[in-house]
């Protein structure tokens, strides 16, 4: 099943290279999502299914959706309506769609049971949870402080409040 690892790695690298070379932010986001999904498949093939699930849920599902929201907020106005027509032409989604189809094919191969799909021993959510709330419990608390600081910072910066000496 080592071929799955190399195929997913190749998809991740191609998608990341395409992402940083797009002009349109939305198309770049499409490629970044494909890259993150490919990295999730890599995680699964090397025996880290929990990290792969988190990669999809948090990275592709939350962080990139936040990017999509911001792109949509920045594109308000008549030009956005005009852009809408040339937004998702087949030429634009066929390459990321093809890359995602490769990942889907890998998923089908893994699920259809021709081998367990994992090279080496898998480390499941149980071991990760035991480590997270055992020796690393202080780091979890610090991470929660960091998230709180990020929340407060984003709420303040996004609220439109006057920053002293700024906004004329």
């Amino acid at each position: 099943m080592i071929a799955l690892f190399y195929l997913a790695s190749a998809v991740a690298l191609v998608a990341a290279a395409m992402a940083i070379s797009r002009r349109n932010a939305f198309h770049a986001l499409l490629y970044v999502v494909v890259s993150l999904l490919a990295v999730a498949v890599v995680f699964f093939t090397i025996g880290a299914p929990f990290a792969g699930a988190l990669e999809i849920i948090v990275y592709a599902g939350a962080i990139i959706v936040l990017f999509v929201f911001v792109v949509m907020m920045l594109n308000l106005g008549p030009s956005a309506v005009r852009d809408e027509y040339g937004f998702l032409t087949p030429a634009m989604w066929i390459v990321p769609g093809g890359l995602a189809a490769i990942l889907l094919a890998e998923l089908v191969v893994i699920i259809s049971g021709t081998g367990d799909g994992v090279t080496g021993a898998a480390i499941g959510p149980r071991e990760v949870g035991l480590a997270l709330f055992g020796p690393y419990v202080v780091a979890v608390e610090v991470a929660s402080f960091l998230l709180l600081a990020g929340l407060v910072g984003a709420a303040y910066l996004g609220s439109g409040a006057r920053i002293s000496g700024g906004d004329r």
Binding site: V58, I63, I123, A131, L132, L147, L151, L157
Partner: peptide, 26 residues
Amino acid sequence: ADGQVMFIFILVMAAAEVAVGLALLL
């Protein structure tokens, strides 16, 4: 499992970073 634990911490940091970064961007 320590590698995945560190990955979770990087995930948390990325989430906090992107929230503040996108608010600054707006």
